Computed example of a mutant assay.
Amino acid sequence: MTNVKSIALCLLSAALAAQAQTPQRLPTVPLRAGMYQIQAQVAQSPEQRAIGLMNRKSMPSHEGMLFVFESREIQCFWMKNTLLPLSIAFVADDGRVVSMADMQPMDETSHCSKEPVRYALEMNQGWFAQKGIKPGARLAGAPFDAPK
């Protein structure tokens, strides 16, 4: 019986690894950063957040990924298995950009918010800088407009 359990666990592990190697596609939400439109995939479950933008080779310039957490905490991100250089904005409940960081592909350095937040938005590296979006700017869209 132990061999059957071991084989089942190996098969489950292999299936999860294969799934993680395929970029996930999640439901999207429209956001705005000033006059700029963003189509953000929403990662809200622990599994979706863990996979994030891993294994993607490209991403359109107007797309990103919004990470939604259950509670406001210091949030930290790394780039394990992430092939794209990304910029991240840590965002307060009201859409205010709290802090930002540029992250390098395949790097396991932690990039953390400067204060507790529930949201983080990843975009192609340099997107925020090119659009003049800095800490203190506000993002708009359904996640930030709803009462918490």
Rank of each mutant, 00 (worst) to 15 (best):
K57H: 14
H111L: 05
E122F: 02
P60L: 13
M59G: 08
A50N: 03
Q39Y: 08
E115R: 06
P46Y: 14
E73M: 11
H111Q: 04
P105F: 06
S99Y: 08
E115L: 06
L121G: 05
F90M: 07
D102Q: 10
S87R: 03
I74P: 10
E47S: 04
M103A: 11
Q104D: 07
C76N: 08
N55E: 14
I88L: 06
D93V: 02
F67V: 02
E47F: 06
S61A: 15
T109L: 15
M79C: 11
S113P: 09
V97I: 10
P85G: 13
F67R: 03
R96A: 05
L84H: 10
Q75S: 05
A92I: 07
S45R: 00
P85W: 14
S87Q: 02
G95L: 07
A43W: 01
Q75P: 05
A101I: 03
L121H: 03
I51P: 02
I74N: 13
G95C: 11
W78Y: 14
S110C: 06
F67C: 00
K57T: 09
N55G: 11
Q75V: 09
C112K: 08
M35G: 10
D94H: 08
M106T: 07
M65Y: 11
A40G: 07
K114W: 09
N55D: 11
E122I: 04
A120D: 05
Q48F: 08
S113T: 06
G52L: 09
Y119P: 10
E108S: 07
T109F: 15
I74K: 05
T109E: 15
L66T: 03
F67I: 00
Y119V: 12
P105S: 01
R56L: 14
T82S: 15
R72Q: 13
A101V: 10
Q125E: 10
T109I: 12
V91E: 04
G64E: 08
H62R: 12
V97S: 01
L66Q: 03
R49V: 03
P105E: 01
M59H: 14
R72M: 09
E70G: 01
M103R: 13
L53M: 09
V91R: 03
Q39L: 15
L53F: 12
Q37M: 13
V97A: 00
P105C: 03
Y119N: 11
S87T: 07
L121M: 12
G64A: 13
D94A: 08
M100N: 00
L121I: 14
P60T: 15
N81I: 09
M35I: 13
M106C: 03
A101C: 06
D93K: 05
M59R: 12
L84V: 06
V68N: 00
H111F: 08
Q75W: 01
S113N: 07
Q104H: 07
F90P: 06
E115D: 11
F69Y: 15
S45T: 01
M100G: 00
W78I: 09
S99P: 06
V98S: 11
G52P: 02
L83P: 05
A50R: 02
A40Q: 03
L84Y: 11
D93S: 08
Q41L: 08
A89Y: 00
K80S: 07
P60R: 12
F90H: 09
